[in-house]
């Protein structure tokens, strides 16, 4: 093989490597999500409804569940848990809710983003029904009761006795309408 041919071959290989690594950068995005869900990094919870399989309810054990909420700047909503703190048995199916009020003068679509702390506990916090799975549209000056049905897995590690579930509410009306493009310019 002549030197030029050898060079060309190696250049091709290396370019391929560079392109593959560019792809890998983007592949890190889904990879990260998988890792987060598996390892409980960042307290990400299941993004889709879990199926409740009636298991033994561990009545000897009580786990404290706390609910907190945040509303994004510029979003004229009130958004709060109806109960801020409860004690549950692992395996027990629990229903609770958050109340949302749109104080604004327009129709707004909200999206709640959940986060559980401690992060390792997230994998054991299973939601069978959650308003965070869907967008939440609310008309001006109207309110809604947003349901959340969940159970705590029996396998929750012993050292975790409190789980805090936080919801951050974001206004995704613009994003939903596809006008997010102009957001940068509008600023």
């Amino acid at each position: 093989m002549s030197q030029t041919a050898a060079n060309k071959k190696l250049v091709k290989l290396l370019l391929l490597g560079a392109v593959a690594m560019f792809g890998f950068g983007f592949a890190l995005v889904p990879l990260y999500d998988v890792l987060c869900e598996q390892l409980g990094i960042n307290g990400k919870t299941n993004a889709n409804a879990a199926v409740y399989e009636p298991t033994v309810i561990d009545t000897d054990r009580l786990v404290t569940i706390e609910f907190i909420s945040h509303v994004q700047n510029g979003m004229p909503w009130e958004f709060e848990p109806t109960v801020t703190k409860m004690q549950v048995h692992p395996g027990e199916l629990i229903r609770t809710s958050f109340s949302a009020i749109n104080n604004g003068s327009t129709h707004i679509i909200g999206q709640a983003v959940p986060s559980v702390s401690p992060g390792q506990g997230a994998a054991y916090f299973n939601k069978t029904e959650c308003f965070c799975f869907n967008k939440q549209p609310l008309d001006a000056n109207s309110s809604a009761d947003l349901p959340l049905i969940f159970y705590v897995d029996n396998a929750l590690p012993e050292h975790i006795n409190t789980l805090t579930l936080s919801y951050s509410l974001y206004d995704i009306t613009e994003r939903h309408l596809g006008t997010a493009l102009t957001q940068g310019a509008a600023r």
Binding site: G74, M75, D171, R187
Partner: peptide, 8 residues
């Protein structure tokens, strides 16, 4: 109410 997505 502030302005979403900005420092306001």
């Amino acid at each position: 109410n502030g302005k979403a997505g900005t420092a306001m």
